[in-house]
């Protein structure tokens, strides 16, 4: 499973992208569960969000969903944080 996160907006307007490929990872099952929940709660179009709030695109195996701060689910927040931290 390939999990990509793109973060745009924010006060600084600086974009960040990262990707995690779970194949061969010992914690792959955990990633898959988290990604499935995060995608299920995402929207099919970018939400309006709030001024200076981060906007996120989460792409899992080619399917993209959208969400924005501060209205993230716990799973979305956790997934985004982990991908941006651990991803390449």
């Amino acid at each position: 499973m390939r999990i990509q996160v793109r973060r745009t907006g924010g006060f600084a307007g600086i974009e960040r992208c990262a990707e995690v490929d779970t194949s061969g990872r010992p914690d792959a099952a955990e990633w898959h569960a988290l990604a499935d929940q995060a995608v299920a709660a995402g929207g099919s179009a970018p939400p309006a969000g709030v001024p200076d709030g981060f906007r996120y695109e989460i792409t899992v195996d080619g399917k993209t969903v959208y969400c924005a701060d501060p209205r993230l689910t716990e799973e979305q927040r956790k997934l985004i944080s982990r991908v941006l931290k651990e991803g390449a």
Binding site: G10, F11, A12, V50, P51, D52, G53, F54, D69, P70, R77
Partner: peptide
Amino acid sequence: YDEGYNNAFWDGKQMV
């Protein structure tokens, strides 16, 4: 707000 959070925003009612 949050941990090591690199942002500030206005949520429509307050600053964060």
